[in-house]
């Protein structure tokens, strides 16, 4: 092993954090010699963080159901109902969209659409990672990714149909 002199060593130490390719953080997003594996892993982390954040928001909003009972309101669920009603209508109300488009654009629907996208991706890529831990398909990781991505898109379209189109049909029937 080459021993560098002490003065040079000090320079090297300052270069460990920023080599000639910039800081550690920048390096994560610099596109050199990257494949599907890297990007799928990054997306897995980001969707994982999003889902954790969502779980806490979810706890908070669902928790308001219990809060009513604690505070002794006469109509249980008043707080929860008003929050969901506000989320559902206030954002795009009165912006002049046709009725169907307006109902599609409702705030809660946009959140749900994003949430389901994150969930579907995290779930399907999770299957891929579990397969690797079982020692299956490590050399076919790219093909497995594309197959699961297609399955994920199909699942996503199905979920969107169920939460966006089906309620409209039911409401129109009433």
């Amino acid at each position: 092993m080459i021993k560098v002199s002490e003065t040079e060593n000090i320079v090297h130490q300052s270069q460990v954090e920023t080599d000639s390719h910039g800081s550690k953080f920048y390096r994560w997003f610099k596109p050199f010699s990257r494949g599907i594996g890297m990007y799928s892993w990054l997306a897995q982390r980001l969707t994982g963080l999003l889902l954790i954040m969502y779980v806490f928001i979810h706890f908070g909003i669902i928790g308001t159901m219990l809060l009513d009972t604690f505070l002794g309101f006469e109509t249980p669920g008043l707080l929860y109902n008003s929050i969901t009603a506000a989320m559902g209508s206030s954002l795009v109300a009165g912006m002049g969209f046709p009725e169907v488009v307006e109902s599609m654009l409702r705030f809660s629907y946009i959140i749900d659409a994003g949430l389901i996208a994150a969930l579907v991706y995290h779930g399907y890529n999770g299957i891929r990672v579990v397969l690797f831990d079982l020692g299956i398909g490590i050399r076919k990781q790219k093909q497995i990714f594309w197959i699961l991505l297609i399955l994920g898109i199909i699942s996503y379209i199905l979920a969107m149909y169920l939460i966006m189109i089906v309620p409209e049909i039911v409401l129109a029937g009433e």
Partner: peptide
Amino acid sequence: CHTAFNCVEA
């Protein structure tokens, strides 16, 4: 190891 496969690409 988080199976990001960068080593395989490299």
